[in-house]
């Protein structure tokens, strides 16, 4: 067992090493344009919105599922918040009251969306891919029906100042992201419920017969994913000062990619939050590099797609290596 734990950390060290090497290479290649205070700050502003989505995807992966609806949840909850903020819904409020009501509405909707996913997957045993594919269409359909595809602009500054606020030179939203990641990490590795989630992902049947209430865990985990997606949606609308269907569609693939790079096994039960955070930083550096190099969106597609395939290939090779090592150890002992 101790071998198992140390080997997994081994993969994590490789990832951290890779991130540092890439950071050093970029320092040589791009120099000032990558590490200027302005670029670092803009990276810190971009990371939270998709980092939170990636953390949500990580939770789904850990319990052996997948959530394709996260971007739709983020968008639609953002749209609902924007509708309250602009006074279309609940008119008559003003000042910070409207902000509080709007955020409450948006986050409640996001959690409800997430719990509905959880209901379909855990209580009705729908397959996660198909269930969240359906709810993705459904939730984005709600957003589309509410807005007719148009953007909602003119959000009050009491709300948008949150997206641009800084604390000692560090964006508040970045601090939020780090706090959420740290809390999730502590929860997953230090609490009984967190460990049960790993067991659930590793083998749902064994977990069920070990008196772990897998249905309840699954139900609530998808609710938490909804909450994370909702937070991401709020960060997006406060940062860009508008809400629109279809914003951040590219994050779907990137969130999956980050989880795979971060060592979260797509079939569940394996991976650490730190790996995902590392992978988010790695992706953000690559993203910034592509922007500096003025890559077309098509070239980015090519790179993200091939990276996903290559990472899956490496995952396969390392799994094969591990099986061999285990066999060898069994023979020796």
């Amino acid at each position: 067992m101790s071998n198992l734990a140390s080997r997994r950390d081994h993969d994590l060290y490789i990832l951290i090493g890779l991130t540092l090497v890439l950071a050093a290479v970029f320092a040589v290649v791009f120099g000032e344009s990558m590490y200027s205070a302005r670029n670092l700050r803009s990276m810190a502003y971009q990371m939270p919105e998709f980092g939170l989505l990636a953390l949500g995807m990580m939770l789904a992966f850990l319990i052996g599922g997948i959530d394709l609806s996260i971007v739709a949840v983020a968008n639609t909850s953002g749209i609902m918040t924007a509708l309250v903020l602009t006074g279309v819904w609940l008119p008559g409020l003003s000042g910070y009251g409207v902000v509080a009501a709007a955020v409450a509405t948006g986050l409640t909707a996001a959690v409800a969306f997430g719990l509905f996913n959880g209901f379909l997957i855990a209580k009705l045993s729908a397959s996660p891919i198909i269930a969240t594919l359906g709810t993705m269409t459904f939730y984005s359909g709600i957003g589309m029906a509410l807005t007719g595809g148009k953007g909602i602009t003119g959000l009050p500054s009491a709300f948008t100042s949150f997206g641009t606020a800084e604390m000692l030179g560090v964006p508040v939203i970045f601090v939020c992201f780090v706090a959420v990641a740290a809390a999730l990490s502590a929860f997953l590795s230090r609490t009984a419920l967190g460990r049960r989630m790993y067991l659930y992902g590793e083998n749902p049947l064994a977990a069920r017969f070990s008196a772990i209430d897998v249905e309840r865990i699954g139900f609530w985990v998808y609710g938490v994913i909804g909450l994370l997606a909702g937070m991401s949606g709020h960060i997006v609308i406060s940062r860009v000062n508008s809400a629109k269907v279809g914003y951040g569609d590219a994050y779907q693939l990137q969130a999956l990619l980050v989880c795979v790079i971060g060592g979260i096994h797509p079939q569940g039960g394996r991976g650490k939050t730190l790996g995902v955070v590392c992978a988010v930083i790695l992706m953000q550096m690559l993203s910034s590099a592509f922007t500096i190099l003025r890559f077309s969106p098509y070239a980015k597609k090519l790179i993200w797609g091939s990276m996903l395939i290559v990472m899956l290939g490496l995952e396969y090779l390392s799994a094969k290596q591990n099986v061999r090592r285990e066999l060898r150890q069994k023979i020796v002992h």
Binding site: I66, P266, S296, Y298, A299, L302, G305, I309
Partner: peptide
């Protein structure tokens, strides 16, 4: 590994190869 994730990768890969 799950074919969904693999083909999501190739979806982007094929499109990227064609356009690039």
């Amino acid at each position: 590994l799950p074919p969904f994730i693999i083909t999501l990768g190739t979806q982007n890969l094929f499109h990227g190869v064609m356009t690039t």
